[in-house]
Amino acid sequence: MSIHDVTVAYHRRPVLWDLDLDIPKGVLAAVVGPNGAGKSTMIKACLDLVPRVSGSIRLLGDQLTAVQGRIGYVPQRETVDWDFPVSALDVVCMGLYRKIGWFRSVRRRHRNAAMEALDRVGLTDFADRQISRLSGGQQQRVFLARALVQDADLYFMDEPFASVDAATEEAILEVLRSLRDAGRTVIVVHHDLQTTRDYFDWLVLLNTRLVAAGSIEETWTQENLRATYGGRLTLLEAAGWAMGTAGSGQSHS
């Protein structure tokens, strides 16, 4: 995936400024930065969900419209109404709507595929449950299952780890790693500095402008993080950074 000279603005205020970066195939990449840094906007720009002022984006070496069927997306959980009258299975089936095509309805084989995806995120028993009666973590996993069923080569996920329980975080991470191990590219907006180093192998540091991008070993430096968070890297976050580094050291040994 490559982003070239992309600028996005909301009401004239630039949210992303002259972004220029490449993410190689087959990595599990984190997009990290302070609030309002344009992390979600970057993903939305890639998917053409927000208008670009300038620049060009190529996904899987092509224009978005040419590869749309090979792209998967997990929006932020809070963006939808979880009171909506559909079941978990219905939501997962939505990932297949493009494949199913216009004027055709969801068939048994589509539902079977959706059930498999639900199984991968550990929600087999909740397939028929109305989505408002799922916990936050389960709702997040339903979204992940909907992306899985898309069977995409490139995934964009917007804060999939936001406010989920430890068990869900573990389950989601496992799925993301299995996607990467299968050669898919996964780009994740992430907010937790403590886990970034452990979870991901590619890092994009963003604060309206691109601060740094590259493999996690090269990019995960104190200077880069300081440059990303500026004065806003509080003591607490610095401590989190230290913990993240120490934690990964332990797991590597």
Binding site: K44, L47, L49, Q68, Y73, P75, T79, V80, D81, R146
Partner: peptide, 10 residues
Amino acid sequence: FDDAFAASLG
């Protein structure tokens, strides 16, 4: 339900 996802499907 989810217009952003709909748009991402094209």
